[in-house]
Design a binder for these strands. Sequence first.
RNA 1: GGUCCCAUCGUCUAGCGGUCAGGACGCUGGCCUCUCACGCCGGAAGCUCGGGUUCGAUUCCCGAUGGGAUCACCA
Length: 486
Amino acid sequence: MDTIITRFPPSPTGYLHIGGARTALFNWLYARQKGGKFVLRIEDTDEARSTKESVDAIFESLEWLGIDWDEGPYFQTQRYDIYRDYIHKLVESGHAYYCDCTQEEVEAMREEARATGKKPMYNGKCRELNKKPISEGKDGKSTNMVVRIKAPRMGSTVVDDVVKGSTAFPNSEIDDFIIQRSDGSPMYNLAVVIDDITMNINTIIRGDDHLVNTPKQIIIYNALGASLPLFAHVPMVLGSDKARLSKRHGAMSVSEYRDMGFLPDAMLNYLVRLGWSHGDQEFFTRQELIDKFSLEHIGRSPSMFDMDKLTALNAKHIQSKSASELSPIFLSNLEKIGFTNLSNSFVDAELNLEKIIETLQPRSKTMVEMAEASKFYFQETIEFDESAAKKFLKPDIIETLKISAEYIKSIDLSDFSEKNLEVLFKKVMEETNLKFGKIAQPLRVALTGTTVSPGIFEMMLALGKDRTVERIERAIEYILNQWHEN
RNA sequence: GGUCCCAUCGUCUAGCGGUCAGGACGCUGGCCUCUCACGCCGGAAGCUCGGGUUCGAUUCCCGAUGGGAUCACCA
């Protein structure tokens, strides 16, 4: 079997959104699974709307997702000579022709068709006129004439699609569409086909909004005598109101999802499940996706973007990663909320970064949440939440806190473990005659300033022995001060 | 409007003639528990409607309805 070659051809008229990312993902997964090649091509022939910023944004998003390409990026604007050659061939072989009908004339044709209840389209006036451009131009550019394909008028063009099955389009619906503008630049359908042929693309996975112009492309393939690639038209991703995805829903740049604290792997996992399934499996690692992805199990109906499910999946991916994998992402999110240079200043032997992450993993749905929830670890002096302190930092707990601090102090640093802390607090419980429930909340407030946090022992471990003792002692002082004032 | 695609819980989906229609998110009752989570156990919630075909249709066919896409010298 031939090497599978897929491609992702975004047009740089905006950032990479969810739908585009999913298309890229499907093509990438398929190529990776089959040991094939994945080509990136920038379709920038709409020079008025294409921007460098968009190109960069697309690269950035792809890189963040970890979708890498084997060839390209190719830019269509740099391939005009190639298209022109093929267009010449098409004209010479009688499959295309020059047309000098003005846009007004064409519009009149459409009006006429509409008036008689027919489909508005070009009527083929110049089809057999064999016109030649007045000035081919030394540069081969401006011709003052467009080139139109000589589309078949009878019968139908059949699209065989892996996900949609076989669809016949009546040729009466397809007019002699333009393949080269009067300024010499190629039109979309032409450029795509020439690129796919010359880049040896044999598998085209794309949104099903392209299904209807596939017959046009097939006409060009046929005119060139080229063999057809495998088509797989994937249903669109809709917004939560079933309308086409727009900024109101999830049509944001995928880089915005990074900023919201989503993991690339979670993104991939969610995206792939939007339209593809593998039995009942919901969670997939990147490698599993590559191993299990299949064109056959792509659904036929459109799907809606659901932020809740993405978030839930993200939580699972956060849990499944090791703390060291999460560490760089965690740090960059901390920086965003003002904790800079933590990687250096805080790895002071005691404050255990990976342990900190571990305490937060089961309780963070996004990396932004994790950073927010971790603040207390990094503050030199924590602030006590007013109502929390009022409820739990009271004089009657001073003795317990003192005993706790003393016991912790007495542990040898090498014995500072969750296991030993548990044993130790059994003793505190005996000595104070309090159940752990009574001791835990005051300690929690002492350590974090609030009533909600990770488990007591795991936190102590992450904080380190000295900081733990320090915070408990500070809580005692705090109670004393409050008590005196009142 | 023409052409084309699509149709299972609110959402993502499994299902490929006979199933108590399964899973996940969300919602919800409970358990676990040092708080919050995580986890675990349970619940409510679905085959768009008509016709066929068949002993039997969620499943196959036709139609309707609904949703979507597309009809450019945009991609």
